[in-house]
């Protein structure tokens, strides 16, 4: 597969309520095709929900977002692309439930942390013309688990 063009799936998702589930349904099908574990499939879906919601909310864009899945022998690469104003992923504070519970602090803000915890690699490229999140999940052999 590696010498050929890698198979890919592209989605264009309108910024509408619960449309992140379109992405997770597609991810489920791809995970089954790749014979990923149930655990890995769940982690991909959860990360994708958070990435899509962040793209919806943080981009402040009325434009659709784009999700690209690229399948290879050993990993799944997902790009979530919005055409919003961009954001500084390095500037995001790591949330802490203890401080959120004790203070009158905003309870939200978990998305980036969850994505980083659930995926094997996560990279943001952001500028004035939008943000591209690239995340990967490696295909592990049974004996690796």
């Amino acid at each position: 597969m590696s010498k050929e063009t890698k198979p890919s799936v592209e989605l264009r998702i309108p910024i509408l309520k619960d449309m992140e589930l379109v992405a997770t349904n597609t991810a489920d099908v791809i995970a089954k095709y790749m014979e990923l574990s149930e655990e890995a499939s769940g982690e991909i879906s959860m990360a994708l929900i958070e990435a899509t919601i962040n793209a919806f909310e943080h981009s402040e864009s009325q434009k659709d977002i784009f999700i690209n899945f690229t399948i290879s022998d050993d990993e799944l690469t997902i790009k979530v692309i919005d055409k919003g104003k961009g954001f500084d992923s390095e500037g995001i504070q790591i949330p802490d439930i203890d401080s959120k519970l004790k203070k009158q602090e905003r309870k939200r803000g978990w998305g980036v942390m969850l994505i980083k915890e659930l995926m094997d690699s996560v990279d943001y490229e952001s500028g004035n013309d939008g943000t591209t999140l690239t995340m990967t999940k490696k295909k592990k052999n049974e004996q690796d688990n």
Binding site: E39, E43, S45, L101, K107, R108, W110
Partner: peptide, 30 residues
């Protein structure tokens, strides 16, 4: 999603003030 989960943090906060509790069951692994 994390927004729904964040609201559970608010629920915990409300119940802590009353010495109450929130228990969860039948959670999917993810």
């Amino acid at each position: 999603n994390s927004i729904g989960a964040s609201i559970l943090i608010e629920v915990i906060e409300i119940l802590q003030e009353k010495d109450g509790s929130l228990s969860l069951c039948h959670m999917a692994p993810i």
